[in-house]
Nucleic acid binder design. Structure first.
Length: 308
DNA sequence: TATATTGTTACACC
DNA sequence: TGGTGTAACAATAT
């Protein structure tokens, strides 16, 4: 499930691989995944062929200047007065195929992190948008669940993008201090700390995996109400945000379900999880059995002994 | 076949 | 008004 470290991994790789490449052609196989304009896609089912044509037309002939992100949103900066935004949601994937590399490897990918997953050739049945570059390389946008999306926004409308107006601070930026974190939590005093960490208005980029891991390392139970945390505990939580996310980036993300890097390979952060996905297994710190509970409809795993 | 899955939004309630 | 909790939604694999 792509969270900040996974998105950052994709961004870093795409920025390197796509920079300077020129889009020759765009093919859209699932109209509902593409849209135009700054607003959140509300009537996603109403995406017309006209929208699809416009989407392709706007991007054709453009060069990729850079790829960056805000929260979990990918930002493709292209030449000309527009930008493409992309969100991977649960199961989105960007796979880049160099023309020469594709020939060499036979372009076979195992796009689920499971030994039983079949090897597939791209485009697969889950490929919904393909970008063909003038040099023969290709970028595939896959999404098993089809919750992800691509949006073309005029640069002058970027300030109107709803997500960007509502997103809280970037956790890895220097400006994200304990004071900023504590201030944002003042509006979310009565909710479980785990849900506060996952609240994009408090801080962006943290989802189910990393909130569980951060709280484990901070020795705080996920269901503790924000206002029940002593200053020392709150500082411990804050103190784990950056290092845990940085560890995730170092290992190129967690491939828990469908997340893959832009070469189709898996990230290895999953091997370094202490609690996420380890329900009923022994805690790596003390041997106690990891338990799980539902918070805000989400599964949360923790060590009942080390987290208080 | 019913269920689990997640980021995000919608909405009722206090 | 706005914080809170719950449900809903997208679509698919298992």
């Amino acid at each position: 499930m792509p969270e900040l470290p996974e998105v950052q991994t994709v961004v870093t790789e795409l920025n390197k691989k796509l920079k300077g490449r020129k889009i020759k052609r765009v093919a859209v196989f699932a109209a509902k995944l593409v849209s135009l304009g700054p607003n959140t896609v509300s009537n996603i089912r109403d995406v017309t062929q006209k929208t699809v044509d416009q989407f392709c037309k706007l991007l054709t002939g453009r060069k990729i200047v850079s790829v960056s992100r805000r929260g979990k949103m990918l930002i493709f900066n292209v030449d000309g007065p527009l930008t493409m935004l992309a969100h991977l949601k649960m199961t989105g994937q960007f796979i880049f195929e160099d023309k020469i590399l594709a020939k060499k490897t036979g372009s076979q990918y195992r796009l689920l992190n499971k030994p039983t997953a079949p090897l597939v050739k791209l485009p697969s049945k889950h490929t919904h948008v393909v970008f063909y570059f003038t040099d023969g390389s290709t970028l595939y946008f896959n999404d098993i669940r089809k919750f992800g999306y691509l949006r073309v926004v005029l640069d002058k409308e970027m300030g109107d993008v709803k997500e960007f107006r509502e997103y809280g601070p970037e956790p890895l930026e220097k400006s994200f201090t304990f004071e900023v974190f504590a201030e944002a939590l003042k509006k979310r005093k009565a909710i479980p700390i785990k849900l506060a960490l996952m609240d994009t208005k408090v801080v962006v980029g943290i989802g189910n995996i990393y909130s569980d891991e951060i709280l484990y390392h901070a020795h705080v139970r996920p269901d503790r109400r924000v206002d029940s945390l002593k200053p020392k505990e709150l500082k411990a939580v804050f103190g784990q945000i950056k290092p845990v996310l940085q560890t995730g980036i170092k290992y190129k993300g967690s491939s828990v379900g469908d997340f893959v890097r832009t070469d189709g390979k898996w990230g290895s952060m999953g091997k370094h999880h202490f609690v996420y996905g380890r329900k009923k297994q022994a805690c790596l710190g003390c041997g106690t059995m990891i338990v799980s509970m539902k918070l805000g409809g989400r599964t949360s795993s923790f060590c009942p002994r080390e987290q208080v």
